[in-house]
Design a protein around this nucleic acid. Structure first.
Length: 596
RNA sequence: GCCCCCGUAGCUCAGUAGGAUAGAGCAUCGGUUUCCUAAACCGAGUGUCGCAGGUUCGAUUCCUGCCGGGGGUGCCA
């Protein structure tokens, strides 16, 4: 893992200072504890208040070792610290590090300007493959807000891993198999006709699906008929297959339209039915490994040791289940992408037991087959869970009709963006395209504005707000930064007087630019695009402060002024921030309009 | 019953590999536009960090118990 340059310099210098301040104890202990740069580096905290410095090293835990009180230790060490690029100051029991503003500005801004959108690129993933499964909608159902979350998080993770140098494979795993298709077939046979499959076919299919569940309450034979219909499908019976294919085609076209709208991409679409011929070999392998048993007529793997319910591989009637397919899928992917670094499943938290079960079965299989530890997939597979999207306090459910359609949301948000443009910037050339960028941006942002694991309530008023911590706020800041560059009308050069950027507010912006690469790496490590969202909001806020800062007379301290060197320096900052916001929005899956 | 997640300002949420007065946005109130896009910026106020113990120099953060909310739990996915 690459270390932060300044942080490491400070840690090394501080370790040296400890050695000089406590030579006797250093002689005893050697290069460990506070006398080792690595230990200092790991122990560095960030002060709550940025004005206290960039990093802080608390010395409290070393009072026993050094036999002095914290303030004395800190004072002694700070005095002995010789750090080329900054200062070290003792405040109570802390060593506060400040980076020389001119050096920091020069280092960061010139790097950003030179690297552009490649700033923050990393080679940590070189030669490694990360699979990311996301979206995975159910065929024959409209795309609701519930599916949006997986789609948006996964799409962002794919981009993040690419930036970090991984070979990222975005996988869509549509649910096109299982008993539910028995239900669809029965519903269609009973209440559908040719017109069902034309016009707004997905809506028609949904109507049938909802009706099925209503009728099944009264007629208990319906579920039996469905099981039978699914068996026909698994057996390849022509009429059933034909219907299933028709449902699939309709859905695929619909899905693709939605993905195009959202700008979501995949590298591999592997649907449940693609695993049909992979299940039997997987089952055979599990049998050979001695994992399976028959229980109440079903083929299962018991997991009692793990306090988990058994995994059902085959139902009493011989039909397969989703766990069967996920297990077959795990094995298939491991074969197709041998020794992948990670395989992530961006799926609702409701399925966490299911993934625990599947992973446990794989672990048992690899154990039984005595596969060497470094050739096992188990530790590389991760369920990236996320919370519910609720509507009016209830979980959204397709069959209950308690759902909000994504397209309705996009259309409302886009309408609002159009209205805002008409009132705020009526002369905007590309108003329609920009409305889409903003409307869709607001929708995507809504899924990335909190931590993954939180449940979120869908609220119209929340998505239809473009002020405060929102996607449009970031886009607006970006547009203004672009506007400044247009107005400046000259090339922005990194060859400026960096002393002119040493004010606290500029320094805050520059610190945030400096942190961007670390934030990307963290979001990849923790599967949390939200980290990028939060960072961009901080960056935009910090810049807007500079942008609207007033001088002592109450006049705006403008970026572009008669003072050419000052303007050049500030424009270097402007362009840096603009490129980072642009890149950050891109990683989240939002577009960054140049004007709005 | 068992397992998992959550409980921080009026609302929505950050912050937790233990650290210095707990932060944003929204909402409320007040201010900023002969000026680079006011979708912005500035100022004002609110907290038993669910409760009770424990570990620690130090706990919103770690451990235990309790209360409250959500989810999962063998033939749906």
């Amino acid at each position: 893992m690459t270390k932060d340059k300044y942080k490491n310099e400070f840690a090394t210098a501080t370790a040296q200072a400890f050695r000089e301040a406590y030579p006797d104890i250093f002689a005893e202990v050697g290069e460990a504890e506070v006398f080792a740069g690595d230990v200092i580096y790991e122990g560095l905290a960030k002060p709550k208040d940025p004005s206290m410095g960039r990093f802080a090293f608390p010395v409290f835990r070393y009072v026993r070792l050094l036999k002095e009180k914290p303030p004395e230790i800190a004072a002694k060490v700070a005095a002995a610290t010789a750090w080329a690029n900054g200062t070290s100051e003792a405040v109570a029991g802390f060593l506060n590090a400040r980076i020389d503003p001119v050096k920091q500005s020069e280092g960061v801004v010139s790097e950003v300007l030179t690297k552009g959108s490649h700033y923050g690129d990393s080679d940590e993933g070189r030669g490694l493959t990360n699979l990311v499964e996301y979206s995975s909608p159910n065929i024959a159902k409209p795309f609701g807000m519930g599916h949006l979350r997986s789609t948006i998080i996964g799409n962002s993770l794919r981009k993040i891993y690419r930036k970090l140098g991984y070979d990222a494979v975005g996988i869509n795993y549509p649910g096109d198999w299982g008993t539910q298709f028995g239900k669809m077939i029965v519903a269609y046979r009973k209440w559908g006709d040719n017109t069902t499959l034309t016009g707004n076919a997905v809506k028609n299919l949904l109507t049938l699906y909802v009706r099925y569940h209503v009728e099944a309450e009264k007629d208990t034979t319906l579920d039996d008929q469905s099981r039978e219909a699914f068996q026909q499908l698994e057996a390849g019976e022509a009429e059933a297959v034909k219907l299933w294919e028709a449902f699939k085609d309709i859905s695929n076209a619909e899905m693709q339209r939605v993905y195009d709208l959202l700008g979501v991409k995949f590298d591999w679409v592997c649907s449940e039915s693609d695993l049909n011929d992979k299940m039997e070999p997987a089952i055979e392998r599990m049998k050979r490994a001695g994992l399976t048993s028959i229980s109440q007529g079903a083929l299962v793997v018991h997991l009692e040791d793990e306090q988990l319910p058994p995994v059902l591989l085959k139902k009493g009637d011989g039909a397969t289940l989703y766990a069967t397919r996920d297990l077959a899928g795990l094995i298939y992917r491991w074969g197709k992408y041998p020794e992948f670094n990670k395989s992530l499943y961006v799926v609702n938290t409701a399925q966490s037991d299911h993934f625990k079960q599947c992973l446990e079965v794989i672990a048992m299989l690899e154990e039984a087959e005595r596969i060497p530890a470094d050739k096992r997939m188990t530790s590389r597979v991760k369920h990236v869970d996320f919370g519910w999207v609720r509507f009016a306090g209830k979980t959204m459910s397709t069959r209950g009709g308690n759902t909000v359609l994504l397209e309705d949301v996009i259309s409302e948000a886009t309408d609002l963006a159009r209205t805002k443009i008409a009132e705020k910037n009526p002369d905007l050339a590309d108003a329609e395209a920009t409305s889409h960028m903003i409307g869709i941006g607001a929708v995507i942002f809504s899924q990335l504005s909190v931590r993954r694991t939180r449940d979120v309530d869908f609220r119209w008023e929340e998505i239809l707000t473009f002020e405060g911590e929102t996607g449009p706020y970031l886009q607006y800041t970006h547009a203004r930064l672009c506007s400044l560059q247009r107005r400046y009308g000259q090339d922005v050069s990194p060859d400026v007087d960096f002393k002119l950027l040493s004010g606290d507010e500029e320094q805050r912006v520059i610190e945030l630019l400096a942190d961007f690469p670390r934030v990307i790496a963290d979001s990849g490590e923790q599967y949390e695009p939200y980290f990028i969202t939060a960072h961009l909001l901080r960056l935009a806020g910090a810049f807007n402060k500079v942008y609207q800062r007033k001088d002592a007379d109450g006049n705006i301290d403008k970026i572009i002024s008669d003072n050419a060197p000052l303007t050049a320096a500030r424009m270097a900052l402007v362009k840096s921030v603009q490129m980072i916001i642009n890149e950050g929005l891109h990683l989240l899956g939002l577009k960054a309009p140049k004007e709005m």
